[in-house]
Amino acid sequence: MELVTPSIGLVFWTLVSFLILLVILKKLAWKPMLGAIHERERSIEDALNKAELAKQEMARLSNENEALLKQAKAERDAILKEAKEIKDQIVNEAKTQAQTEGAKLIEKAKLEINNQKIAALDEVKNQVASLSLEIAEKIMRQQFNDKQKQEELVGELLKDVKLS
């Protein structure tokens, strides 16, 4: 029974010391401590939220950068492709032009050669004709001096004619 009989003195002193402890701790310990813990938790939460936002911002920026890069690459590719096309076109054009030009030149040269040939032949013919006439004149003049020779010559000429 002794154990479960509270003594008035201990009850009194416990009540006094607990209440004093409660009041002092409330004022000097719990308030600043809980306040500081709460404050720190809030600042940590804030920092985490900010970090999250910064992360999102970073992701957005890097996405943007990537998009820009992609666009730039596409543009570059397009430009290169266009340049290649232009180059091919120019080369092809030059080729065809050169071909046509060459063909024209060849044609012209052929024509010229023909013309020259015709002209040369004409001249040769004329000269042959005039020479023949001169020769014939001279021969005629000689031959008409000698009758026999005249006949021989005619005969020879005739032979030649036949041969030719």
Partner: peptide, 18 residues
């Protein structure tokens, strides 16, 4: 003991804010 410990700890909360 409790008072000494907790008041000194509360002091370090004031000193090391955040």
């Amino acid at each position: 003991l409790i008072l000494v410990i907790f008041i000194s700890v509360a002091g370090s909360y004031k000193k090391r804010v955040g």
